[in-house]
Amino acid sequence: MSSEEFEKLHDFYKSLYDELKLMPERVWRCHGEEKKRLVRVFDERLGEAEEFTHLQSQRTLLIQGTQYLNEASQSIERSSRIAAESEQIGTDIIEELGGQREQLERSRDRLVHTGENLSKSRKVLRAMSRRLVTNKLLLGVIILMELAILGAVVYLKFFRK
């Protein structure tokens, strides 16, 4: 309740209280119909005070309800903004994850090709190693044959006469 409304209510009750203070004197001085009329007037004023108080309390409740609704609306707006921001962040993350997935797939494909190339290289190296061993054995056999021929030539030339 605002201070202005409170002052109105205070003034209204003060005037009612002032009338109530004067009422016993007036009632004692009056008789019969006048007394009944004064009691009726007092009851009417009391009813007006109660109605005024009731209206003020309803108005206060209505203002509080409006404030609660405004606060709830602001809270919903904040929640909507946060949800929109979260959705945008989620979309950005999904796009980034999609790009990273493509990178990983390309890397995996390169690794598969590298693995295939390594297998081919191993086969070529094994073949080269076999040829090298074969060539060394052949060269060894040729050297042994040359030594045997050379030994046979020296034997025939110097020891056989």
Rank of each mutant, 00 (worst) to 15 (best):
F12G: 02
Y13R: 08
Y13Q: 11
Y13C: 02
Y13V: 04
K14W: 12
S15K: 00
Y17H: 14
Y17D: 04
Y17P: 00
D18S: 05
E19N: 04
L20H: 03
K21A: 11
K21M: 03
M23C: 06
P24Y: 05
E25F: 07
R26P: 01
W28R: 13
W28Q: 13
R29N: 11
R29H: 12
C30H: 03
H31R: 15
G32I: 00
E34P: 02
K35R: 13
K36D: 15
L38D: 00
L38T: 04
L38I: 10
V39Y: 01
R40K: 15
D43C: 13
R45H: 02
R45M: 08
L46H: 07
G47L: 14
E48V: 08
A49P: 02
E51S: 13
F52T: 03
F52R: 05
T53D: 05
L55P: 01
Q56A: 15
Q56E: 14
S57H: 07
Q58A: 01
L62G: 00
L62W: 07
Q64K: 09
G65N: 11
T66S: 13
Q67E: 11
Q67A: 03
L69K: 11
E71K: 11
S73A: 10
S73K: 15
Q74V: 08
S75Y: 10
S75E: 05
S75P: 01
I76C: 00
I76Q: 06
E77L: 01
R78Y: 03
S79I: 02
S80R: 01
S80T: 00
R81G: 07
R81C: 09
I82F: 07
A83G: 07
A83V: 01
A84M: 01
A84R: 03
E85H: 06
S86A: 15
E87W: 08
I89Y: 05
I89K: 09
G90K: 09
T91Q: 15
I93F: 05
E96D: 03
G98M: 02
G98N: 06
R101T: 12
L104Q: 07
L104C: 00
E105A: 03
E105S: 05
R106I: 11
S107G: 08
R108I: 05
H113F: 14
H113E: 15
G115F: 07
L118M: 12
S119G: 12
K120A: 12
K123Y: 11
K123F: 04
V124T: 08
V124K: 04
M128V: 00
S129G: 06
L132D: 02
L132S: 04
L132Q: 10
V133H: 05
V133F: 00
N135F: 08
K136V: 12
K136A: 15
